[in-house]
Design a protein around this nucleic acid. Structure first.
Lengths: 189, 189, 189, 189
DNA sequence: TATGAATGAGTGTTCATTCAT
DNA sequence: GATGAATGAACACTCATTCAT
């Protein structure tokens, strides 16, 4: 029974996209606590314009998180289709990268003041489904030990995102990610 | 150029200790965004009293972090003396635990809006020294692969703290910590 | 120095009438604080269209008040022609009814943030003239005491409108209006 | 189980009283829609000071209304003790006076955006009780017709307050109040 | 010295009005 | 002419910090 969301006027669509982009960058840099006015300033629009497109600050935040996660899901599915044994690792790397540049996403994913499953149930479901698929694939391919489950993977993502923000991407990938990977690949005790 | 910190009167010292304790608990529960008035209320003192001992909210936060880290250092040194091969693992577990119960400390350690080396250079130096010692010990004992360094361990702590806040202590210890440990113990490629 | 109001195009005239009607209903239901956008939404026009016909929100409000008062004047004149002794009472009842359903009109009439004589001098003049006429008629007919004047009647209207909004129409008519009427009919002390 | 409201410090008590007084005057002049900042400005305090004493704008408004109504109740009881037949009329006059100078009180009493019975049940109860008492007294004394009840009196107060704001006190008392009084004194049809 | 009251800049959000499409 | 998007000045309320008591 949702209203057909009639296409936005060209200028409005441009502004909406611009707000999303700037809000993404700003939340990424400053975390979810940045004032809306700061986002408006950076986007070169009035605060009211943001509120025309997103009724609350939280809804703007949600829109960004949903967008990011959808991109990760898509890229991961593509890669997992090509190399099932590597799908999970590719996913971990994507998520670490996202968390690196995106303070807001990390907070959202770690549930700091934001419950993903409650706020974006659809995205959460698709996301969890993806993880279950690629984890099972990797376990069948023998690249991931058999005793880890989806909850463990989620936990590792939270950890990797935190680490990625703490450490440069190149260093994380060359020095710490191999440790995690070795731990995941190791046979259970 | 530091003032000689003349000894506090007994009641003032008691107040200072009480504020530290309550502030620790409160930041741990509520995160760094909790109002100073809430800490004052819980401590049963006026807000002014807190500002007498700590000139800004941030300085109070710093004092707590320093205090916590000193405790971890002490406990870790004791355990490392007993079993050098386990010292580093004991340390990781202590830090994860601290991060678990201490939202404020995690933020501080991960450098979210707070740079430890800049804010508390003395503590940071001692802390890094400890890590170098116990890492070297473990590598000599053969329990940790030879190609990880202190920076890698710091990074893993950031990750573990984030994970510990995301996941219950028992589950983290039984399900994810073994993965990290297996990765650290594995021989380099 | 007023612009000659050149005749509106048919569609524009239709829009203007529609806005007036919807604005009347909306102000009546929601009071003068209702956003212009809400009126536009209900009327199925853009906000800009309202501003084309009425340069400010207040001017729209004025137009409605004028319209309503003209209707009351007309109906009252008709009834007073039939029964001069009852004309004033019919008028009071009409005005109370208007105030009942029309939060905006009541505010306008009572001068809450809106001065009728200043804002709509023409309407005010006609309105006052009507009251003078029907009051004199009623006094000649002996149905209203001789010592009340037009200002008193205006005052009573303000009171009746306030009362009507406070109390249901039926109850006001059966229980309180008779008291007012008895007071007006009573001979002067 | 209410906290014993320990006595305020002298300066705080002075400020609280000042805020109440200024807020009373300001609401009276401007109505309930005045910004809190305006009240703060007039009182010569920061907005935060008002919020220290009254947690919301509405609670400040409530405090004023309660205070005013209690004064009216008290004065009316005194006068009714002296002359039972006049008690109700004295009450009507008091309430009209209050409404005259107090736009906020009128709005509260007429229920414009504020439900007295819900917001201040104690005051409302005492108030209604007073009206029942003095109305019965007056009816026993024969100064008020037997067929009006408390709800009718409330309605008349709403009307009188609206009228009093519309018309000067002296004129209302000399010209319109006698009409109401005659209507109330008249025998039922 | 301790208290907690006062300050005032800052936050999310709304809405009358203007203006590009 | 009509549309509805953009603007930006409010507003209620919060909180780190200062200061009178």
């Amino acid at each position: 029974m949702t209203e057909k969301p009639r296409p936005l006027r060209a200028d409005a669509a441009r502004n909406r996209a611009r707000v999303l982009q700037v809000a993404y960058e700003t939340f990424a840099e400053e975390g979810a606590a940045v004032p809306i006015d700061e986002i408006a300033r950076r986007a070169g629009v009035g605060a009211g314009t943001i509120y025309r497109h997103f009724p609350t600050k939280e809804s703007l935040f949600r829109a960004i998180v949903a967008d990011r996660l959808r991109q990760v899901v898509e890229r991961t599915r593509e890669q997992a289709a090509v190399d099932p044994g590597e799908g999970l690792y590719a996913f971990l790397v994507h998520m670490a990268e996202q968390g690196a540049t995106d303070l807001g996403l990390t907070e959202a994913f770690a549930g700091i003041g934001f419950d993903l499953a409650e706020a974006l149930p659809d995205v959460e479901k698709e996301f969890t489904g993806l993880m279950a698929d690629i984890l099972a694939q990797a376990q069948r391919a023998g690249t991931v030990r058999s005793d880890v489950d989806v909850a463990d993977i989620k936990t590792l993502i939270v950890g990797l995102q935190a680490m990625r923000r703490f450490r440069g991407d190149s260093e994380l990938m060359h020095r710490v990610y191999p440790v995690i990977r070795a731990g995941l690949a190791a046979p259970p005790d």
